[in-house]
Nucleic acid binder design. Sequence first.
DNA 1: ACCTATTTGTCCGTATGTATG
DNA 2: CCATACATACGGACAAATAGG
Lengths: 116, 116
Amino acid sequence: MLIRIDPASPAPLFEQVAASVRRAIADGGVAPGDRLPGARDLAASLDLNVHTVLRGYQLLREEGLIELRRGRGAVVVADGGRRGRLQEVVRALVVEARRLGVSTDELVTLVTKEMG
Amino acid sequence: MLIRIDPASPAPLFEQVAASVRRAIADGGVAPGDRLPGARDLAASLDLNVHTVLRGYQLLREEGLIELRRGRGAVVVADGGRRGRLQEVVRALVVEARRLGVSTDELVTLVTKEMG
DNA sequence: ACCTATTTGTCCGTATGTATG
DNA sequence: CCATACATACGGACAAATAGG
């Protein structure tokens, strides 16, 4: 579970924490069911405040990537066939865009901006 | 713009703040374009910490109900039309993409292909 | 059933950064 | 240039849920 932070980066620290975990999950470095390091432990090892780590974790929870429970910590969510779900959402998006007469370029811009 | 808080309620204070504003918007007490009270002012009048109010405001921003900008404060979003709906779908898409570790490029490709 | 340690959740306080007007 | 107001990060305290003995 490799998590690294660049204090010089313009990206907020809590966002870097979340991004780091996201990547670890995507890479398979951590599997569904695995437990992430406790917020205090991770904060100590990264030399961050507990709140900063916790905020990153809570971001991931809102995205549905992890579960957070008191006394138990952060656990990576079991991820079923979500690839199909992504296609569904893409289709829904295109339907909505067409209805509004939004061009492909405009739509791509919207999506890109939201991805950050 | 009537916002009240019950310190005895089990609901978190920041959630009560958000709920209060939500209701005000729904009731028409505040119209799109209206500015909400500054976080510090509201915190003072409710006898809360600035962070608590700000957290409530940020919740509302994530829901797309208000805009928060430095130096300007919190403004109720002009919504109504479908444009907001499109934005919602874009957000949902991005959340799903992140969950899967799909890159911006990959996502753009998917969307572009679906647009034809 | 009880107690204790662990771990996140909320809230407060303070300081500094940064976009807006 | 300056005042305003949100954004991030640090710190500390206590509450509440969970797990284990």
